[in-house]
């Protein structure tokens, strides 16, 4: 279908794509932002967060998993799709314990930044207030599962890049949760290291480096001045988060 590349339209704008690109990667390369959380330029499509909900020729789908094909008519920047995304964000917020004022990731958290950009004013739904653990056993990092959104970026990074297989997703439904592969189940008993890819991919504040704290003043943080739809286009283009 897409052997030779070609172009599709995204909200009326013509987007050229190379063979193998998805709608999301082609749009990003062309400088058009489509909201996403579980997609990462260094990893194959995953498709779990569904923030990149689009319509392709009138059919619902995920921009991160659908391969670009010539002539597709893709819609992304519509009130209906933004409403879906806002509700998905609200779901992620009520599912965990997202207490932004006390989170060191605040200001550079993708979940929070998308909530700002899509103007999510409240979580709307009933909070689940789940009981989730904090693991501070590692000398350099801590895990706060209260903030986990199950994107599995750490799972994928540790397995596919670091070759360590430190994280796994267990459970099902709302009982889904990340587990750590060590006899004690704690991060301190793994060979997790600051140089790991898994140490830098978490889009939220679930995996954080210790002794950093609120280093950057409010106002100077990644998403303080400009929305993620502008900032991430600069960040994602070279294929690196930061």
């Amino acid at each position: 279908m897409s052997e030779g590349g070609g172009s599709f339209t995204l909200d009326g704008q013509v987007i050229a794509f190379a063979p193998g690109q998805t709608i999301l990667t082609a749009a990003t390369a062309a400088g058009v932002y489509i909201p996403h959380l579980c997609a990462h330029p260094d990893f194959p499509p995953h498709g779990s967060c569904k923030l990149c909900a689009v319509t392709v020729n009138g059919r619902d789908g995920s921009a991160c998993t659908i391969e670009a094909a010539p002539g597709q008519e893709v819609r992304s920047d519509t009130p209906e799709l933004h409403e879906i995304r806002r509700v998905l964000l609200q779901m992620l917020f009520v599912e965990g314990n997202h207490f932004c004022p006390g989170c060191e990731k605040s200001g550079r958290c993708k979940l929070q930044a998308l909530a700002y950009d899509l103007e999510m004013l409240s979580p709307h739904f009933v909070q689940f207030f789940p009981h989730r653990e904090i693991d501070a056993s590692h000398p350099e990092f801590f895990l706060d599962f209260n903030r986990c959104i199950m994107c599995e970026l750490c799972v994928r990074a540790s397995r596919d890049v670091d070759g360590k297989n430190i994280f796994a997703l267990a459970g099902r439904g709302r009982e889904s949760h990340i587990i750590v592969n060590s006899p004690s189940g704690r991060l301190g008993d793994t060979d997790f290291a600051a140089t790991d890819k898994a140490a830098e991919v978490c889009p939220v504040g679930a995996i954080l480096r210790k002794e950093v704290g609120f280093a950057t003043p409010i106002g100077a943080r990644l998403y303080d001045q400009a929305p993620i739809s502008q900032v991430d286009l600069q960040v994602d283009l070279p294929g690196r988060e930061k």
Binding site: G47, S48, C49, K50, L51, L88, M91, L92, V94, E95, F125, V126, F128, I149, M150, L169, G171, R172, G173, R174, E175, S176
Partner: peptide, 21 residues
């Protein structure tokens, strides 16, 4: 459905529980 959702994607994982509630 809340019991049987595999938990992979946001709308089903969280949505089915919200609906049941």
């Amino acid at each position: 459905f809340a019991h049987e959702s595999c938990g992979f994607c946001t709308p089903c994982r969280v949505g089915t529980s919200l609906v049941a509630g």
